[in-house]
Design a protein around this nucleic acid. Structure first.
Lengths: 126, 126
DNA sequence: TTTCGTTATGTTTATATAAATATAGCGATA
DNA sequence: TATCGCTATATTTATATAAACATAACGAAA
């Protein structure tokens, strides 16, 4: 077990600020949905993205549906049928949403990075 | 302060970044726990704070317990017995935790306030 | 026209979370 | 020493969330 040298940094990994954008009660955009969008952009399909993220297709589809409903335009466009069965792509609009969200997340995190490190010292190990 | 200003707006209010500090799987500190600490500080007891926040005493106690276990020192100190039945107080340490958390929340929010307004324009009404 | 993997959705089952209820123990003070 | 409201915890019930399973529809390509 890694002990003294790592005891600080390894633990800090779980101590992170999260930014979630709410839409009514549902989370319209957050870390998980951003990851899913990136996976869809990577793989070209919801199901492949789901496999990559080790979640059920149904769950991934529901997350996509939530996003598509929350925003003024679809963030993911889908195609059904065809040799490959269909597919999905992050729309240009979706890429803009993702880009802006990622930027906000990074900026907010950076803005409190120092304070967060100090805060971690108030917490128990691990 | 009673609950009254919850009537009309809530439009952009639900579209806010939230900062949560995670500890293992449980949330060590977040908006709800911060509110609870403030209510305990206001009222001098967990049960009065729970009533004020309209949650069960049990739930409030569990939240306090989570916090007390997550931090190096108790954020809430309790007393049992006595004429008033006992009571609870936010410790000096707890006040420091709350202060630092609140500062981080405010700073992070402010840092992305402008971007967030623009982001809201990408979302559907309400 | 058959095949294929995907989208899209429904249904059922399991798990996790929250709420509701109950109650023991405390101890200053009246 | 009897009372009071609170802390602390256990137990049960209800609800919400997630997982698991199933299946129809699609349409380009073989």
């Amino acid at each position: 077990m890694a002990k003294s040298a790592l005891s600080g940094k390894a633990s800090r990994q779980e101590l992170k600020p999260q930014i979630r954008i709410l839409f009514r009660k549902a989370i319209a955009m957050g870390p998980g949905k951003a990851d899913l969008l990136r996976a869809i952009d990577d793989t070209g399909s919801i199901s492949a993205a789901a496999r990559q993220m080790e979640m059920s297709y149904r769950r991934a589809w529901l997350l996509v549906d939530t996003m598509n409903q929350a925003f003024k335009a679809p963030v993911v466009a889908t195609l059904t049928g065809g040799k490959a069965g269909g597919g999905a792509a992050v729309t240009e609009f979706g890429k803009e949403v993702l880009k802006r969200y990622s930027a906000m997340e990074a900026k907010a995190s950076a803005s409190v990075a120092r304070e967060l490190r100090g805060f971690a010292d108030l917490m128990n190990g691990d």
